[in-house]
Computed example of a mutant assay.
Amino acid sequence: MTNEIERVVATPAALDLIGELVAEYGPVLFHQSGGCCDGSSPMCYPRCEFRIGEGDILLGEVGGTPVYIGRAQGEAWAHTQLILDVVPGRGGMFSLDNGRERRFLTRGRVFGEEEVQKLESRSGTT
């Protein structure tokens, strides 16, 4: 265990599904964007087929898979740890988890005051 505060973590179920997708498609990435419909779910794409934009920030990695978020949503959730999980249902239309009757879901946990202070001192921002 590390003292590093992780902005994004994954449950064992999410790590299992990531492993399945990587075995089938090769390296993947996640993008969590704000918006309606599928845009509010974590979307999983083949890493070589998705372009990260200037407005996207890297939150971290789960199971060796990078997780990005749109800057505006990242700023709104700056004090929240994202927890990538899996629940029954269909994934987003363009997400690789679609059609598996399991989909990724992002849960959140608000950081405690001490964690926020460590994050702010690490990044120099709020």
Rank of each mutant, 00 (worst) to 15 (best):
E101M: 14
Y68M: 02
D97L: 00
E6P: 00
L84M: 12
G26C: 05
S40F: 15
G92V: 01
G64L: 04
V86D: 01
V9L: 10
I5N: 08
V86E: 04
L15H: 11
V67W: 11
E6W: 07
F50P: 01
V110M: 09
G74D: 10
R51I: 02
I18M: 04
G19M: 04
W77T: 06
V62H: 02
G34V: 03
T106D: 05
T65Q: 03
F111E: 03
I5S: 09
L29C: 13
Y68Q: 08
V87A: 12
V86K: 09
L84R: 06
P12Q: 05
E101T: 12
L21G: 09
R7M: 09
D16T: 15
Q117T: 05
G92P: 02
A78Y: 11
D38N: 11
R7P: 00
T65S: 07
G91P: 00
S40K: 15
E49R: 13
R103D: 00
E115W: 07
L58I: 05
L21D: 09
L29S: 05
E20W: 07
D38A: 13
G112P: 01
E20N: 12
L17E: 04
V8S: 09
V116G: 01
F30C: 02
G124W: 15
V28E: 07
R102W: 00
V22N: 02
E115R: 14
G92S: 09
P12V: 14
G112Y: 14
E4S: 12
S123M: 05
D38R: 04
P66K: 06
R90Q: 13
D97N: 07
Q81E: 11
R90E: 10
R51D: 13
V110P: 11
C36T: 08
E4H: 15
G92L: 00
Q117N: 12
E114A: 15
E61R: 14
Y25Q: 04
I18Q: 04
F94W: 05
D56M: 05
D56K: 11
M93V: 06
G124T: 09
T11R: 11
M1Y: 15
